[in-house]
Design a protein around this nucleic acid. Structure first.
Length: 595
RNA sequence: GGGGGUGUAGUUCAGUUUGGUUAGAACGCUUGCCUGUCACGCAAGAGGUCGCGAGUUCGAGUCUCGUCACUCCCGCCA
């Protein structure tokens, strides 16, 4: 039989007691971390969410209690009453906050016995992820995850306080809502009341927050779940949390400043780090040109250099032809890495091929020669120009990618990150932010043969580019901005379109005619026509932000109950098959492909 | 949809290259001893469908094929 709580009341947490508490009568409650039974005296490390205290059962103190303590095992839940005593002088434990004292127990309640845990509840014991997820309640007892979730709590508290202080109003928006075209795949929810019809779970509260601006709330925020039915990654889950906000009567600068203030507050509260603002701001074009990616990692240099003009007439036909066909030849100088072996170069070539690069040309710069399969194709003049452009010195190795601009930039940009990882250029505990602005408004979908919104269809184009919407849509830049931290996009937003005419024009570019626009976004167009303030906003990925703050490499370690890569939950075994009755009620039939 | 990695005791792993006796280690667990440990110690013990299914072979943890799960990445993620 286990014990009931009775009138036992906790007086302290397991991290609190010190020398100054000696002789106090205390009551602790917690889990058994370790038991050390010496036959006579029994030591137990009692753990709660705050820490650990050593408690002692001594037969000389109470035989009956000592007897009962012998059945205690790991992870049992105890309530104990006893006296705080000093440890013998040579028995202090400097590794524990409570290492100067221990509690000699007079009264023991065993609230719960525990079956042997599937894995040991210690940070140094790393169980496989599927076991950890199956027994997530055990996993969550580990100090690391407790620390991460407490940090997440601190962050959200700081966010709410900051936004409240800045006049933002927390307003909830529906989860059962309407499917929107474009964007990610929707999660659908069948409607029982309206047979054959479905709600969609929101990919973001985008349209609702715009409606709130039109309603006059001026500043809105929400820490809210969003749903996208796409494949998972280490930093991506089908349900994730956004810090979502929207402001009226603001331009890009004001949104970015407000967001910066929030990030500064979070870093101060969670990590006690003082960030310097304003964060650097670079345009999309500059980011791509210098770093190859729209989310540059600014913790290291290794910038990309365009050498297309130098090699356009070179004897190396691969380069020359790429330039002739509108492609780009860019290069990256890995200073001092001419010692790379053939194997290392092959690995980097394979790495680049993942991003569609057809090859990775290289030149090792030695004291008196260029060692390379391609060096012989360059004239002295071309070599001199390359040397100058790429700052080539003996001991360097330079890598080239030649392809269509998109591939060249992506492959070399990713290679830049990989080189930095391999060369150890990335220091721990560094946080390099940058805003990336003026994204293209549209890109062209080759498979569907039409333009697509890069951000979303409600993003405003730069005012000066509006006239290009019909003549040269791909040249139109938008009033969108992303916040990038250490090469990872943690937030993004834009100034929105607040006029029906402009919104119509953009829909037009996207191939959405008036009928379709009215059918899908009629409510937004009506709202815009009913007095819409200029407005814009931003949303941050809370999971990603916490992943970076907690120095984790997966968002699963900052989410209490995350999904596996196949979007399942090993703990609850979701998703699962509905009953026939449920399906009938919804008038849904499963057409089986297998079984 | 595609590519890579992993899968052996409750847990983490070794063993697979080159098929061959009874599949090992550490931690955990059980029992006994132990009054100053703190990753306690000592002794003994239990614990295995080598992910699953076929195949090759005298013989498969090891080789082949298929399949499942977990994971990383590409595609996808306005």
């Amino acid at each position: 039989m286990t014990d009931l709580l009775g009138d036992l009341k906790r007086t302290h947490h397991c991290c609190e007691l010190r020398n100054t508490d000696i002789n106090k009568e205390v009551v602790l409650m917690g889990w058994v971390q370790h038991r050390r039974d010496h036959g006579g005296v029994i030591f137990i490390d009692l753990r709660d969410k705050e820490g650990i205290t050593q408690i002692v059962f001594n037969p000389e103190n109470s035989n009956a209690v000592h007897e009962k303590a012998q059945e205690i095992r790991n992870e049992y839940v105890l309530g104990v009453k006893g006296k705080v005593i000093a440890r013998p002088d040579n028995m202090l434990n400097p590794n524990m906050k409570t290492g100067a004292i221990e509690v000699l127990i007079d009264e023991l309640c065993i609230f719960s016995k525990a079956r042997t845990p599937a894995f040991q509840i210690e940070d140094r014991v790393e169980a496989s992820e599927s076991i950890r997820l199956q027994y997530r309640y055990l996993d969550l007892r580990r100090p690391q995850l407790q620390k991460n979730l407490l940090a997440r709590h601190k962050a959200t508290m700081a966010i709410r306080k900051y936004l409240d202080n800045n006049g933002f109003v927390d307003i909830e928006t529906p989860f059962l809502t309407k499917s929107t075209p474009e964007g990610a795949r929707d999660y659908l929810v069948p409607s029982r009341v309206n047979q054959g019809e479905f709600y969609a779970l929101p990919q973001s509260p985008q349209l609702f927050k715009q409606l709130l601006m039109i309603a006059g709330f001026d500043r809105y925020y929400q820490i809210v779940k969003c749903f996208r039915d796409e494949d998972l990654r280490a930093d991506r889950q089908p349900e994730f949390t956004q810090i979502d906000m929207e402001l009226s009567f603001v331009d890009e600068q004001q949104v970015m400043e407000t967001a910066e203030g929030m990030i500064v507050t979070i870093f101060k509260k969670v990590l006690d780090i003082d960030l310097v603002t304003p964060f650097p701001r670079i345009t999309y074009d500059e980011a791509i040109s210098r770093f190859g990616l729209d989310r540059p990692d600014l913790r290291f240099d290794l910038e990309l250099r365009d050498v297309s003009d130098i090699v356009k007439d070179a004897g190396f036909k691969v380069f020359a032809n790429v330039v002739k066909n509108g492609g780009l030849v860019k290069a990256i100088n890995a200073k001092g890495c001419a010692t790379f072996t053939r194997k290392q170069i092959d690995e980097l070539t394979n790495f680049a091929s993942v991003y569609k690069a057809k090859g990775l040309a290289w030149i090792k710069i030695k004291e008196d020669l260029w060692q390379s399969p391609i060096a012989k194709f360059f004239t002295d003049g071309e070599k001199e120009a390359l040397k100058k452009r790429l700052d080539l010195e003996p001991g360097d190795i330079v890598f080239f990618v030649a392809d269509q601009p998109k591939i060249t930039n992506e492959a070399l940009g990713q290679l830049r990150n990989e080189l930095a990882r391999r060369l150890g250029l990335i220091l721990d505990n560094t946080y390099e932010f940058t805003w990336v602005t003026q994204f293209p408004l549209l890109d062209y979908d080759e498979t569907e043969k039409r333009y697509q919104a890069l951000h979303h269809p409600f993003t405003a184009p730069l005012e000066s580019d509006i006239k290009k919407l019909s003549s040269d849509p791909l040249a139109v830049k938008s009033r969108a901005y992303d916040l990038v931290l250490n090469g990872i996009e943690i937030g993004g937003g834009s100034i929105r379109i607040h006029s029906t005419e402009l919104q119509g024009k953009v829909f037009n570019c996207l191939g959405i005619d008036e009928n379709e626009a009215n059918e899908k976004f009629g409510f937004l167009l009506n709202a815009l026509a009913s007095g819409a303030p200029p407005h814009g906003g931003i949303a941050f990925g809370l999971d990603r932000l916490m992943m970076l703050l907690c120095q984790e490499d997966s968002i699963r370690n900052v989410i209490a109950f995350p999904k596996t890569q196949k979007a399942t939950c090993p703990l609850t075994e979701a998703p699962s098959k509905p009953s026939t009755a449920q399906l009938q009620e919804l008038s849904i039939k499963i057409s089986r492909i297998e079984e």
